[in-house]
Design a protein around this nucleic acid. Structure first.
Length: 755
DNA sequence: TCTTAAAGGGTTTTT
DNA sequence: CCCTTTAAGA
């Protein structure tokens, strides 16, 4: 058969591949999603029952979009298109007893996890100040991603000499799991782990689903972790018609346990693998693609890959340098505003990416100032709001009476006179009889230690919960409305005219709307359980509305899989991109993940790409002089210095093309010399020097010389970089053996050991 | 027990 | 700088 005209040969090869493991190595913008959807169509046209097809994506948004496309291509489509986590949630719901849960189990989000870990530490009498629950929880999560259970961790700990944190982790992990199990709850990691366990403990179940899902397609395979690998390979033993697509150069989740090896080893793990490479890019201009390609070529731990396109050259990729973050955001907002006003672009053409969420605030302010509408894929999402969490906790508790996190959250919210003491007694009593907190509360009368007033308060609470417990036929929206009503949840805010109060009322109503909408869209299958599942598994990106007609702001991570006509990436500075944490351990792999992250961001751009750097970056209230990102000299960029409120700098501003340097990084000074051709830099240095009240600087730093820093103490200069006034010094400090890099002329380093 | 105030501490990325 | 957590007072 010949490929249809709208598919390339390579795409067609992947689409029409008959059976057996298929690896699609797809560069950015190479039509990967199209291949997956068309492959599903091709399978069905070949006579496959669509119910035998399972497609797994990374985000709900991707899943929904894919499902919509497949629905158009395949009449009466019954294929299962879902995210890993949602798929697993459904799986566990069905086989809950096999993993020690009931079907109404709760799914804890990150903050619930922290709460439960805090509870765990409390029970173990571990000081949460020295051992922050969030940090312990993160470590536990990491272990789970690597499929290490509590027993394995304890054994491992006994064998090796660990640090204090490790000791606490080893101790807390099993207890945390017990608390989860007792609460009939799972965290995000458990969703995956329980399914892995299911495959192991119930082989007949595994083979049953292996047969049921004959054809499996996995998107973004480079970001799967070990648990996800186990789940997928467990479904591909007897029927290994497994198609994975991904791009090792876009692997950006190593920090949370993703195993890039999964995709690199695919050809070895399965026999008779067909590999298809999609290397033609249909998304970006040639210049954007070339810059991205130049950048990623600097990764050493990589299979080389050709990226090509027939697209026109387009405009140069720009680097704009600003004096500070304020001017940076202001200039972006102004540029966007002007382009839209001139009819050149519409708001939704623009996206702004940043490395850390903290950078969004300033951008948001600037955009509002210029009247530019925007949406943020934000960390402080709707579902993190206190009032939303409260109400969802009520839903959770009436749905799953064992849910301790939910119980503890709302037992005294709104305040009803159940304080710390009462609660402590109640908990101890419940523990001694191994009953749920709610059951214990119901029997509070029998608690002789409780004061009569406390008994009455507890009684009021349990009566309330009993009253709120829904019948299966109840609509979710009605259940929620009843909760809001019966708890007098809005009482304190309804008439308050404070902005905060109004906002809360607004959020509550929004949640109610979401529930009613859920009832409508799900029809018969709508249940409190399903609604809660939907709520806990939404991600930040899922909430973006591509038809909103606004500028979109998000982190580089969230940008994966998306595309925009015009992309800005802000903050190309040392310690930001690459992030300081990737530089700490001096691990090449982490640095390279940062490079991939920038690569992902750049390749989202269709027509225009602009990177920005700010000479001054304020964080935690303090402004710090920045060092340009090392990545900047790895690509061809059009540099424009942009200091708009400074007439002198404006006069001097000129653009110069900065050529990348193919020479290895040992030749830093040379690279920096080329950067220096750029005009205005020295001028800027002069400016910054007057701004900063820095001391006259001893210029005699040499590798090996001893220095003192007011904050970090004594240290040794380990390397030098940069030129002239932007010379940088890297110092390894005695304390913690930490390493920091400073701009020599602007840092408070003092040489010691010489008079 | 609840409200309010102060201090301290922490910041990557997310299903 | 912002948020959370904890401490003191009503």
């Amino acid at each position: 058969m010949k490929p249809p005209t709208d598919l390339t040969d390579a795409q067609w090869q992947a689409v029409s591949h008959a059976a057996g493991p298929l690896l699609v190595l797809a560069g950015p913008g190479s039509g990967k999603t199209r291949v997956i959807t068309r492959r599903i169509q091709a399978l069905v046209e070949r006579g496959v029952d669509s119910r035998q097809i399972l497609a797994i994506t990374f985000t709900n948004k991707a899943a929904d979009e894919m499902a919509a496309r497949v629905d158009q291509l395949v009449p009466d489509n019954r294929s299962w298109i879902s995210t890993f986590h949602r798929f697993c949630a459904r799986m566990i719901r069905r086989h809950a007893e096999a993993v020690g849960l009931t079907p109404s189990f709760s799914i804890l989000d990150t903050s619930d996890q922290h709460t439960l870990m805090r509870q765990t530490l409390r029970e173990l009498d571990i000081d949460p100040v020295h051992f922050p629950p969030s940090r312990i929880a993160a470590r536990v999560s990491r272990l789970k991603n690597d499929l290490l259970g509590p027993e394995a961790v304890q054994q491992q700990y006994e064998r090796s000499v660990g640090d204090h944190i490790q000791a606490v982790v080893a101790q807390a992990y099993p207890v945390y799991q017990q608390l989860l199990q007792r609460s009939n709850s799972v965290d995000f990691d458990d969703l995956l782990l329980h399914v892995v366990a299911l495959w192991q403990t119930c082989p007949e179940l595994r083979s049953q689903y292996d047969e049921r899902f004959r054809h499996i397609l996995v998107d973004e395979y480079q970001d799967t972790n070990r648990a996800q690998y186990e789940i997928i390979s467990g479904l591909s033993v007897d029927y290994p018609d497994l198609c994975v697509t991904g791009d090792p150069d876009q692997s950006i989740y190593g920090w949370r346990g993703a195993r890039i090896e999964n995709i690199l080893r695919f050809e070895r793990e399965f026999s008779d693998v067909t590999t298809v490479r999609l290397e033609q890019n249909f998304r970006s201009t040639a210049r954007i693609l070339r810059a991205a390609d130049q950048l990623i070529s600097h990764n050493t731990l990589r299979k080389p890959k050709a990226l090509r396109t027939d697209n026109p050259d387009g405009q140069r990729v720009e680097l704009r340098v600003f004096a500070d973050g304020q001017q940076e955001s202001d200039a972006l907002a102004r540029m966007i505003d002007q382009r839209v006003r001139s009819g050149d672009r519409k708001y939704s053409d623009f996206a702004v990416f940043y490395r850390v969420n903290a950078l969004s605030r300033q951008l948001e302010l600037a955009l509002s100032r210029h009247g530019v509408p925007y949406q943020v894929a934000a960390g402080t999402a709707f579902y993190d709001r206190a009032e939303v969490k409260d109400l969802l906790a009520y839903l959770r508790l009436v749905n799953n009476p064992a849910d301790e996190v939910a119980f503890l959250r709302i037992v005294n919210t709104p305040p009803r006179g159940i304080g710390k003491t009462t609660l402590g007694r109640l908990i101890r009593w419940a523990r001694s009889r191994s009953m749920t907190l709610l059951d214990a509360a119901r029997q509070a009368r029998d608690l002789s230690v409780l004061r009569p007033r406390a008994v009455a308060a507890v009684r009021r609470f349990t009566d309330l919960i009993d009253e709120l417990t829904p019948k299966p036929s109840d609509a979710v929206g009605d259940v929620l409305a009843r909760i809001i009503d019966q708890t007098d949840y809005l009482l304190g805010w309804m008439d308050s005219s404070t902005e905060q109060g109004q906002q809360r009322v607004g959020n509550v109503n929004e949640l109610l709307t979401a529930a009613r909408q859920f009832d409508r869209s799900e029809g018969e299958t709508a249940s409190v359980e399903a609604f809660l599942e939907t709520c806990s598994l939404v991600s930040d990106v899922d909430q973006l509305d591509s038809s909103s007609g606004t500028v979109t702001l998000m982190t580089l991570h969230a940008a994966k899989g998306l595309e925009f006509p015009v992309v800005f990436i802000v903050g190309l500075e040392h310690n930001l991109i690459p992030h300081e944490r990737s530089l700490r351990e001096n691990q090449l792999s982490e640095l390279e993940e940062e490079r991939r992250l920038l690569f992902v961001g750049m390749t989202r751009a269709q027509q225009e790409l602009c990177l920005t750097q700010s000479m001054l970056r304020e964080s935690r209230g303090r402004g710090l002089h920045t060092i340009p990102s090392d990545f900047l000299v790895e690509m061809t960029l059009q540099r424009m210095d942009d200091f708009d409120d400074d007439p002198v700098a404006d006069l001097e501003t000129m653009s110069t093309v900065v050529e990348p340097n193919s020479v290895r990084r040992s030749c830093r000074p040379q690279e920096q010399a080329q950067m220096r051709i750029v005009r205005g830099t020295d001028l800027l240095d002069a400016r910054l020097e007057t701004v900063s009240a820095s001391v006259e600087l001893p210029q005699g730093f040499a590798v090996g010389s001893q220095v003192r820093h007011p904050q970090y103490g004594r240290g040794t200069v380990v390397s030098l970089g940069g030129m002239s006034k932007r010379r940088t010094v890297t110092v390894e400090f005695e304390r913690d053996a930490r390493t920091e890099t400073f701009v020599a002329a602007l840092c408070p380093l003092q040489p010691i050991g010489r008079r």
